[in-house]
Write a protein that binds this DNA or RNA. Sequence first.
RNA 1: GGGCUCGUAGCUCAGUUGGUUAGAGCGCUACGUUGACAUCGUAGAGGUCUGCAGUUCGAGUCUGCACGAGCCCACCA
Length: 873
Amino acid sequence: MLNELEKIYNPIENEDKIYKKWEESGFFNPDNLKLSKDAKSYTIILPPPNITAKLHIGHSAMLAIEDLLVRYHRLVGERTLWLPGTDHAAIATQSVVEKKILAESGKTRHDLGRAKFLEEVWKFVNETQATILHQTKKMGSSMDWSRLTFTLDEQRRKAVQAMFIDMYREGVIYRGERIVNWCPRCHSTLADDEVEYKEQKAKLYTFKYDKNFPISISTTRPETKLGDVAVAVNSKDKRYQEYIGKEYNVNFCGQKLLIRIISDYNVESEFGTGALGVTPAHSMVDWQMAIANQLPIIKVIDEDALIKDGYGAYSGLSVDKAREMIVAELNKKGLMEKEEEITNNLSVCYRCNTPIEPLLSKQWFISVDKKLERLGNKSLKEKALEAAEKRDIEFLPERFNKSFKDWMANLHDWCISRQIWFGHELPVWYKGEDVYVGESAPQGVDWIKDQDTLDTWFSSGMWTFSTLGWPDNFKNGVKIGDLAKFHPTQVLETGYEILTLWVSRMIMMSFFALNEIPFEKVYLHGTILDKNGKKMSKSKGNGVDPMEVIEKYGTDALRLSLLMGSTPGNDSRYNEEVIETKRNFINKLWNISRFILGSVSEESLNQDYKICPDGKTLADNWILSEMNELVSKVSKNLDNYEFSFAADELNDFTWNKLADWYLEIAKIEKDKDSILVYLLKNLLILWHPFIPYVTETIWQSTNQDLLMVASWPKSSNAKKNANNFNILQEVVTAIRNARSLNKIEPSQKLKAVIYGHNSLDLLNSQKENIKNLKTGLSEIEIFEKGDKIDKAITAVVSNIEIYLIGEIDEAKEKERLTKEAANLEKLILLQETKLNNQDFVGRAPESIVNAEKEKLANYKTELLKISNSLKSL
RNA sequence: GGGCUCGUAGCUCAGUUGGUUAGAGCGCUACGUUGACAUCGUAGAGGUCUGCAGUUCGAGUCUGCACGAGCCCACCA
């Protein structure tokens, strides 16, 4: 029994206790669930949060959605696994630790040395990891902690090494030279999607290499022109057509260059002079042109953004300094034609904002285009595209299917090596020019291990199967153990911003390793913006700490606010008032439960909640049929990932049907114990995936077993009992309404004059209810039509006229009725016009036309009643 | 340049294949608080669904254009 004194639900007091109970039960682990033999599996692998991060509101939304899904499927009786893990986030973590060490001791990672530095990183990781895990639990997440993983733990290391070696043997991983985004400060390459663009003012210089060269070129970076090998023009540009294919020897600021004139569709005739100096070693597009035209590649800039040796006075200078000198030189020689201010986008490192230097470098790549025998002679890209195309993987919302395919189709080879220390090591060994790929060094001396680490997306790309025991659980092409039980997973739930970054990589990796999809569905939630619709960020300080929200309103209120009123893929705004109303709702549910549990008999509490009791009265049958319908709607909505609809239905039933009507009637009509208990228990089960703590707390007050493993109710096929409860509702509402408008004293008498054969018996049977349902009237009389009524206020509903007898504010009543009559006349006119329209009557479905006719008739009847009432005033 | 989302009540948002008089919560107004709940109840006011044009018997919903807000991708030599 609930403590009588607890009028208000106290989340803080109950949440930790309940979570402990769940954890100790062992039911987070699907191996401990009591399942039927043919139970399906339902698996979600948690998108691993960054170990350095604290939980933010976006995580909370993710956890709320995933926990909802997992709890629902567990209640339905499926073999449900939610597998937790954390991400080592190589670059982010290393950067945080570097900053920390620098602040504490003024040392850089190079001062410490690799081994000592990594020791520091691991110390940090072990400290911070606990925070995010603890906060994850606070959200009520029902994850199987016995299967907890980390992207950089021993088992994942094994998986990554195996994957790399296998991919290398298949020729998917290769070592090659190409332009990479190089951050001179981090001393690391960045993936294309780690590069950010910043708008800046820059100078665009227009000049010729030397006097004998026929074409002027424009550039913002004259210093790179030391490595030019060609000038590219658009093939359609008439100005330059005669030059295409010709070669010129030029002397550019003391550097001898051989420049060929080529054509390329990437060149825009309108920009600058319409001619582009091609610098293959320091620009991605230029590099592609050089490869296509088999041009040499000349490096000018080194890893520290300084000019390389062999460029005379320029060597050793920073790019900015070299630019100044070259500009001066061009001016001196009279080659400079124009200097103009333009705004362009500067590529900068997403971590440290340092301008990116595109450099040619030896890196490891994954080929997305290599055809693989094991994939039926298709490439990873083709398999991923096919999965989306054939809907083997479904996207929610659907529009992301197209975004995904567009992005995938344009995907280039993926650079996977990173020049940082914290991360997965490459199983690669060098001896001079020899390269060996394998778990340990080959025979012989002088083999040196590759110093790079892998892009973190390499290990997170393997996340769905590395967490389930691959490669140990994959023997001779057959899945065993957890991998067989839980892969492919059912849904990947994540933010749309990493659709391309992560989702695409998981799909490719899974195809390579297992030749199957990693998940059946991708559910993408939107971003939570701040109150003003801006993105939350540390720098703006507009973030919301979920732990503070939980402290103030409870976890359930936070979860419910994140689950309701939002649609997949669309951003929503954080609004504290919304959380407050959810807290109020939870308290309402608490009090509904308190009322029911406090008023029913002990033995009714022990009845089997799966058996639906028989209804005796109009209200009983109504609420039971509403409950039956609720079960079917909520189940359907949850199956379709429509959480908000499901919660709306539940909210409407709980507050507007159960609390406002049925419980009020239960105070009047007695002997409803078994129905009340049945309603409450099933309602708690239905609500549990949304608000697990409060529902379990209530459940625990009367049950030995756990709500989290109760049985989800089934809706019977019985048709909705078409009863007349809505007439009772209408009459009561009309009386309340009229009473409120005319300020009728509670003590005054009510007379209802009824015509229409059904309603008379009905209202007679509901006399007590009408009187006591907050109509504020002490007496009620029901008459046949024809009785004489004085001083009456009229309400008209359905087929019933109600006269409330008492003192009337005649002017006010007249005004109200006149207004209503005017409205009705307008509607009648509209309706008549519509029905006179031959097109409508001739072409609209008959059911619609009939409905319109009936509507017109109803309006006319009501208007007649109102005009009669007006006359009697 | 290519693509996407959004514009509905004062605010935050729903609106599920086009079909009754477009909904909810908060806020506002009036009244109330009777033993589950003041984190409460009853009722009310408040909308030319951004604009224009089109398709249709019928458009918040579909199409085109315009305006406004925001996001993503590519390029920026």
